[in-house]
Amino acid sequence: MRAPLDQSGDVKMSVDDLFLGFGRRQVLHGVSAHFPKGQVTALIGPTGCGKTTLLRCLNRLHDSRPGVRIDGRVLLNGEDIYHRSTDVRELRRRVGMLFQRPNPFPQSIRENVTLGARIHGLWARGETESRAEAVLRDVGLWDAVRDRLSGTPFMLSGGQQQLLCLARALAVEPEVLLLDEPTSSLDPHSTARIEELIDSLKGRMTVVFVTHNLQQAERRADQVVFMLDGEAVEAAPARQFFAGPTDARSQAYLEGRPA
């Protein structure tokens, strides 16, 4: 079935009747959803409903997995990212991702931030240092790392490592940012910091985040997509959704009852 869609405003990305399976296991059963430009969308739903699987479809992170079958369309600015002519590496630059656990590269802190921009040829030779500083300032990490840019990122706290990963993702100037439960392994302070950053990205970046924290979705999302058993059951503006979802299954989930 198709979820009711909020068609107001520009659509940055959309998923159209998307099916996905690993071998014999079907994970997504015809998901359709829209991600409005410059807005923050929260993907919520019970564990195993396909939120992360859907999120990873948006930058083709399933590509190299053996036995994966994908059917349907994923559009970025109206163009199918699964089309043969897609430059996958450029797609992943445009659609960045932050993961559940911090995963800085085993390189210096500086290299973590500059590597992507250098590979994608974004920064001029002379401006690397200043651009790196700007990105680190953006995520509020500069003061903590300015004296140890050549050091290992693993000396940083978990929250700082996640901020570094965010800086790494932002450094390549993505249009869409995907976040897969980005705060589930962080302390409350770092969580608040990441959430503030998500807020600050509103308007200039399209954000899609997966979360199990309903308060977080309510606090930070403009739109909520509720998923159940590999389908997008309901999509609605966050305020409306949390005030009273229209689908009985969404209602049951919010109340902690089995659907």
């Binding site: 992170l61 450029e90 992943r92 630059r93 991702m97």
Partner: peptide, 9 residues
């Protein structure tokens, strides 16, 4: 995943 998601070869 982190490296691939950044668009690295």
């Amino acid at each position: 995943d982190g490296a691939v998601a950044l668009g690295l070869s």
